[in-house]
Design a protein around this nucleic acid. Structure first.
Lengths: 251, 251
DNA sequence: CCATTAAGTGTCTCTTTGACACTAACTATC
DNA sequence: GATAGTTAGTGTCAAAGAGACACTTAATGG
């Protein structure tokens, strides 16, 4: 709602992108977080530690998408990554947590300066990366185990999850979290952890049998102590050909 | 894709909201545009004229949503308006059209300064407003008749349309474009013009008969030269109660 | 070779979709 | 006040999709 405003100075702000990077470890949906530890300049003792999403400022000559791809590339070394701009955050108080103020001061930044952040979410196959980012520690954290994050990053993460859930209901993006070749059980698990539902195996397979862009290969799992699953690949070409505007206005 | 960058100066920018305001005149989907005419300071002659979306800068103490509601309120006088933040635009060249440069110079603004714009779309019942906005001319233009707009506003409008089409497939927002009491035929027309499809009257009614939040009233149309239609109202309470997470991952 | 484990498969019922055509109720005009 | 014009409102059938449900198969490990 329109609540009125206090002063009429026009907001002039740095612009950053924040990327919510989702991964899947075979069991759970995870998110990649940066471990931020502030050491006291005099004593060298760690003063506080917490976790943030990964983000960076946008440069002057750069598009928003380029900035997001750059953040992802710096962090993961990957270039062709699924990325979706889902929402922009600019609440006047979004950097006002005590630790955040300390951190910004430590970085030489003005903790009273508002920063607008454009939120992206990304899906990556966790097998494909090694973690290192500008000397900071990054780690995978299961969605269910994410505690309090810096800034407004809990809000950004929640909105990203909502966007992800909505998107996966209508577009085939689950495979982005899986290796190039994957089994249908893996795919089903991805849907289950994202949507938080249990799905019936046979019904799930009936459903995706209609999706012609999931192509069975001759390959099977190896080294598993049970019947090995057939592996599938996602065909973007087939997908682009077969997708149509679907008319469902459910709800 | 990540194309590299030319300089590494951090983007510092004004932030604006741009609102794509959709309306419905009983026949077509329309959008509210501002007629921008630049008059030569010396001769008083109009130098050029074009159309823009409605937008404004965000103030320092204001949330993004507040700014968007403020823009809408200033333009329409309406306070409880459907509003949806759909995408943020900040391409480095987005203000680089010739007329835009002239316009910015005329306003005393730096035409080389990049401005980040947060895009919203809004649905309003056109009957409910009278048009006046800061002395400028605003007018309804049918979607099919929108020509070239200022800045990157064609792109913003296109993205807004995509967002609107996606949203109306899954959430009951069509009534936002209609008077408080509306007929089912009106509702069907709204879906048809937004989705660009023809719908079967009986099937449409079967479908929305399941939507318990469309409540028939005792009232009927008057003054129409044919059988008068029953009027319905949308019940937000019923909607909030009956909506559930639907599990459809079609496509 | 036996136990364990996950893969893979079919049927039935119920709901939803989509195609299709006539009667009802009001106004305007003659 | 009869008639023409116009849109409202309604039901059925066939095809497709959703959802519930249980057994056999193929690998490994001991």
């Amino acid at each position: 709602m329109y609540n009125g405003i206090i002063n009429k100075r026009i907001l002039n702000s740095y612009i950053s992108v924040d990327c919510v990077i989702f991964g899947y470890n075979g069991q759970e949906l995870q998110v990649l977080l940066v471990d931020r530890t502030l050491t006291n300049k005099e004593t060298g003792e760690p003063e506080f530690t917490d976790l943030t999403l990964t983000g960076n400022h946008i440069y002057e000559d750069e598009t928003i998408d380029d900035a997001a791809y750059r953040v992802l590339f710096d962090l993961t070394g990957l270039k062709n990554v699924f990325l979706d701009q889902f929402k922009t955050f600019a609440h006047p108080d979004r950097l006002k947590k005590e630790n955040d103020r300390k951190w910004l001061l430590h970085d030489g930044r003005d903790p009273n300066k508002r920063i607008v952040s454009i939120g992206f979410f990304s899906l990556i196959a966790t097998q494909s990366i090694t973690l290192e980012w500008k000397g900071r520690n990054v780690k995978w954290v299961s969605i269910s185990e994410v505690g309090e994050l810096a800034f407004d990053h809990n809000e950004i993460l929640n909105e990203a999850l909502i966007a992800l859930r909505n998107k996966i209901k209508h577009e085939p993006i689950g495979f982005e979290l899986l290796p190039e070749r994957f089994s249908l059980t893996q795919m089903q698990n991805v849907y289950e952890v994202i949507l938080g539902t249990e799905l019936d195996k046979r019904n799930f397979r009936k459903k995706i049998a209609r999706m012609k862009y999931l192509i069975p290969t001759d390959e099977k799992q190896t080294g598993v102590p049970h019947k090995p699953a057939r592996l599938y690949v996602f065909s973007r070409e087939v997908y682009e050909k077969t997708k149509k505007e679907l008319f469902d206005f459910t709800v």
